[in-house]
Each structure stands twice: as structure tokens, then as C-alpha cells.
Amino acid sequence: MGLNRVRAVFLDLDNTLIDTAEVIKLLKSKYQYKEGEAHVISEKVQVKFSQECYRESKMSITDLRISHWEEAFQETRAETASQELAKECYFLWKSTRLQHMTLSEDVKNMLTELRKEVPLLLLTNGDTQTQREKIEACACQPYFDAIVVGGEQEEEKPAPSIFYYCCDLLGVQPGDCVMVGDTLETDIQGGLNAGLKATVWINKNRIVPQKQSPVPHYVVSSVLELRAILQNIDYIPSVSA
């Protein structure tokens, strides 16, 4: 069945197509964190990464990201975090992230088949060099019609402007597009801000959102469920002028 209900799909990179939560193993094995706590900390750090104002910060990118880990520990356990633990987690994450950034065969096959029917665009926040390194490491360029890195634009997700830029690249209207990502505050809120047809939240760890969090149109536990979601999005014809 053709996907005539949407004209473009925007996908996030980190924790949507690839998994960057390798540090969870360290927290469980060396520091005896419970699995639930380790996942919460990792999720908090990923949100902080996606929202970081690295262009405005007076810190180096290294110090800024160590501070993200410190804050995530403190927010989770309501106690002062060890800077040494935060440093260890950050440098482990940094040293292993490129090694573990590969698209699974299932994801590759899904993107290949999906792209036959609808244009795909990779939309990721973050520092230009950092994100381009990840894109190159996971070799995802062949699976997308366009790639947009927030650090190369005036504004990042959740600002509507970056979504409009993506629409212009593909020659589509916001109301014909779907945003897919794992972060409510950037991916989902951004899609809602820009008036996209639908937003799909990848909730791998079945996190219960806070009451004030943006509400996605669809929630799935794996990006591999995306095709089924797209097939069921109600088609609303565009009104011709």
C-alpha cells in the first residue's frame, strides 16, 4: 500500500536510529545503579545534549557535557554528584559513541523500503563537527534525501524555522510531513510548533512523560513500527488555492 498520506518524513538520529546509551552498562556494573535509574540518567543526558546552548556557553564543549552528566545524576538521586563519576561517564560515552554508532540491518531495510515511497530527511540537533562525525560513522547518508544539522542553522529544534527549512529543501508543506524522534522537548515539541501533520515519539524505555510534556500524535517503542504508523495516518487533502 502506498504512503500517499504523507509527503515527507523527518527523523532524528540519536536514540531514534542509533543507540548511544552504552554508558548504562558502566553505571550498573561498576557503580551498582539500578537499571531503571541508569536509563533515567541516560535519557536526561540525551535531553540536555539536544537542548544545549553550546553556541552561547562560555564553557568548552567538554566541560559543558560533563556538567550535563553531573546535573542528570543530581536530578535523579537528589544528591550532589561526583564530578569524577560525571567525567568517567562522559569520556566513556565519547570514546565509545562512534564505535557503537551503526544502523542495524532492520533499520537499513526499513529506511530503504520507506524511501521508495516517501522522501526522508535526517534532522538532528547539536554541534556541527560532533553530529557530522556521527553521521559519517553510522554511514546513513545513502538512506536520506537530505540531512540537516541544527548547529549549521540559525535555530535548532524545537524552533519552527528549522522545520520550515527542511520543508523547503524537499518542496513540501509542513502539514504534509511527519517528525519522528525520541525527545519530547525537541523532536515532538518542534513538530507541534511547526504544524506538522503528525509527530511520532520513540519511547524505547516506556518512560512516563511529565504532565507538562508535549503530547505526540503517536507513541511507539521502536522506529521499526514507523511504516505501520504512516499507513494509518488519516489522509487530509490539501486545499487548493
Rank of each mutant, 00 (worst) to 15 (best):
R7H: 14
L13Y: 00
V107R: 02
L196G: 00
L85M: 13
L123R: 03
T16N: 08
R55F: 10
S161F: 06
L226N: 01
I135S: 14
N15G: 01
S82G: 07
E37L: 11
C138P: 05
G171F: 08
I233Y: 02
D187H: 11
P214W: 04
E155P: 01
T62L: 10
M1V: 11
C167R: 06
I24D: 12
A81E: 03
I236H: 12
E152K: 07
Q212K: 15
S60H: 07
K58G: 08
T80S: 12
T124Q: 05
V40S: 11
R115C: 10
I207E: 03
P158Y: 04
N203F: 14
S42D: 10
W201P: 06
Q173F: 09
D145P: 02
V239T: 14
G190H: 00
L11Q: 02
I41L: 13
Q129Y: 08
A81W: 07
L184N: 00
E56S: 14
N4C: 13
Y54G: 00
N232P: 03
H217L: 12
V180H: 02
E155Q: 15
E22S: 14
Q189M: 08
Q212G: 08
E75C: 04
H39V: 13
A139G: 10
P209M: 06
L120A: 00
L98Q: 11
P174Y: 05
H68L: 01
C140I: 13
E22Q: 14
F49D: 06
V47I: 12
A159E: 12
R77N: 13
